[in-house]
């Protein structure tokens, strides 16, 4: 058996080493403390609420979030706006509905059951308005990018002047965290760009963190429930495993030889 463990260890080292040397070549993302990481990770409610504000006031003019509904804003484990607040938020949007009895489409104030209103009717319209680049839907964006939250958080703060020798076309910007460093979204955030309703100082870093937290929740709305259930499930499994282990010892003790 010893040789077995030695070989497993060896293989593990073989596999791990190149992965490490590989990641060393990549750029290190900016780090921050995410409250939702870890076994008991939970979202920071006020950060989620601020993040929603950043999304509506900054991102939502180009980026859709088609899988979210206004009712989600009041749901447990999310930003947890009160039902009244969520209704007021929904009602502040004009939603296209219909056809009515005359066969006409019409607009009405949004309701909780409505999906987030999209900035463009379709992908083509979005491309046409953004110089050919489609601003990706942000509902699952965090899960759709290799670096996850760290990548989004860094990207938002990664705008720089291009190094000498790099020429950029019109409508292309330099970002040190973007794959290939060229991004078609201009820098959107600047200190004091928005006024947080809870009075928090709206620095670029703060806004990046808040909106990324919000996007994480958007992509994984049941994260808190998952962490809670996971902890219970694993504790339960450990207890049952221990019980089964002693039952097994008891049963096998009827046989003279060892297991």
């Amino acid at each position: 058996m010893k040789i077995f463990y030695r070989i497993i260890l060896l293989v593990f080292l073989i596999i791990i080493t190149p992965i490490h040397s590989n990641s060393a070549e990549k750029i290190e993302y900016l780090k921050t403390d995410w409250s939702f990481k870890g076994l008991f990770g939970k979202f920071d409610r006020s950060s989620l609420q601020r993040g929603y504000q950043v999304y509506t006031e900054v991102c939502s003019s180009c980026h859709s979030m088609k899988y979210l509904s206004y009712r989600n804003l009041a749901e447990k484990g999310g930003p947890e706006f009160s039902l009244e607040q969520a209704k007021a938020i929904a009602a502040s949007f004009e939603v296209k509905d219909g056809p009515n009895a005359d066969g006409e489409m019409f607009t009405r104030p949004g309701r909780l059951s409505d999906k987030f209103v999209m900035p463009y009717d379709n992908v083509k319209a979005a491309q046409a308005a953004n110089g050919g680049a489609y601003p990706p839907d942000m509902s699952v964006l965090v899960k759709a990018r290799g670096g996850g939250v760290d990548y989004i958080y860094s990207l938002l703060q990664g705008y720089e002047d291009p190094p000498t020798g790099v020429t950029l076309d019109d409508g292309v910007y330099y970002n040190k965290y973007m794959y290939g460093n060229k991004i078609k979204m201009a820098n959107q955030l600047s200190d004091g760009l928005i006024e947080y309703s809870d009075g928090t100082n709206a620095t670029v870093e703060q806004m990046s963190k808040d909106v990324t937290t919000f996007l994480m929740w958007a992509a994984e709305p049941h994260l808190e429930a998952r962490h809670r259930m996971g902890f219970k499930a694993i504790i339960y499994l450990i207890i049952l495993t221990v019980l089964v282990y002693f039952s097994m010892k008891k049963i096998w003790s009827r046989i003279e030889t060892e297991v």
């Binding site: 339960y236 019980l243 008891k250």
Partner: peptide
Amino acid sequence: RRDFLFTATYAVGAVGVGA
């Protein structure tokens, strides 16, 4: 004591199946 151990194991197992 053995019976208790088996009963406890069955009971805890049944709770898990239900859940």
